[in-house]
Design a protein around this nucleic acid. Sequence first.
RNA 1: GGAGAGGUGGCAGAGUGGUCGAAUGCGCGUGCUUGGAAAGCACGUGUAGCCGCAAGGUUACCGGGGGUUCGAAUCCCUCCCUCUCCGCCA
Length: 422
Amino acid sequence: MLDPKLLRESPEIVRAAIARKHLDVDLDAVLALDTTWRALLAEVEALRAKQKAANNEMAAAKKGSPEFLAKVQEMKAVSQEIKAKEENLNFTQEKWNAAMLALPNIPHSSVPDGRTPEENQVFATNGSIEATSPHALPHWEIAGFSNLVDFPRGAKVTGAGFPFLIGDGAKLSRSLLQFFLDEDVKAGYTEVSPPIFVNAASATATGQLPDKEGQMYETVDKLYAVPTAEVPLTNFFRDEILDEDALPVCRCAYTPCFRREAGSYGKDVRGLNRVHQFDKVELLKWVHPSSSYDELDKLRNDAERLLQKLELPYRVLLMCGGDLGFSQSKKYDLEVWAAGQKRWLEVSSCSNFESFQARRAQIRFRAKATGKPELVHTLNGSGLAVPRVLAALLENNLQADGRVKIPAALVPYFGKDYLSFK
RNA sequence: GGAGAGGUGGCAGAGUGGUCGAAUGCGCGUGCUUGGAAAGCACGUGUAGCCGCAAGGUUACCGGGGGUUCGAAUCCCUCCCUCUCCGCCA
């Protein structure tokens, strides 16, 4: 959510942001609603002040006296009026609130213009895609793949997109998780193991609700299976005021992630490219507003380092305005090269939300200089999503003999130098 | 899951229909005192919305939501959470 003051004082900034993100929002309608809401609020408050003043008079007067009874009659009318106006106010306020939630975050000045994913800038590349295995195949075509990743049985037991990982497949997945967590902790993040179901208030604070409920699995208890650890992690400090000295707070968490991905089909969803349940380590930071862009660079570097240590070629995209996402100010995507499919797979998305999430979740810190609470800036990024990294490893490192070479950094975790499909 | 008790400001804790945003204590801040400190004394000390250039004004908030009433921290309903006892259980 944006600062309502920004909307009132500089609507042109918000208008420009909407244009840069290529969204369709009727800003004038929001501004009109804001004016109406404030006028109604003033009316109701004036009536309440009147009621309060009368209340004090009545407290001082004798209970059954004529003037007391007259006051009761008089205030009955005021009470009716308040009720009527309040109903209107509440109705308007709900509309105002919904309208405010529909306004996107402002892109940072360093975000390139553009409408489509093709207009994202390649910010950096690392490693050579030519250096990958000449024997590379799409991972689902590798002989014995179904021995490690069993989609048909997952479909039988649960549904499409819920594969079983077996043997070296399960072990490689677990090795990656452990490697990611260890590296993230070394980089200064505190490991957290959060709940993997969240309530509606939490899903609302991070923006999954309203409007995106169709993307989450919901239980009969009205709890939602987390689509990413970002949700429980961010909500940890919801409605809290932190010490300024405590910033930045850096945390990482592994959770399985659950996404309904309704309507997805085609080559994008073959094999491990897109599944309904996958493992991911998420990085999250709560930082002082003055340093959030430095922290974003560090966060991106922390995620990049994981791919470097795994010796996987990757590129970093700086997202253009149109592909930025509703609540981000700036976002980098990390894409790993999958040599068999000959395409880039997104394995991390590192974003600065500035105070957009923090306002919605009411996460603040007490500024020492003023003693007043201010909103923190929140950042997050994957570090990293497992199945696509696993897919890239299988494809890029496939040997002539059908085995997969394990990168040196991962060998201590995996326990051997080669993965076998038998 | 069953029975009972309870949720008030940073903490403790009073308040059972009106002058209560809320006593008191602790904590915290500023000042006085002191060679310095402690103690003591004085004053101050929540969050947010709206109006205002500002000074300031005004409203809301006593777990959440709803209701009764001229008026609710206080009465009623409902949901959530905590604690105690019982049951069940990795």
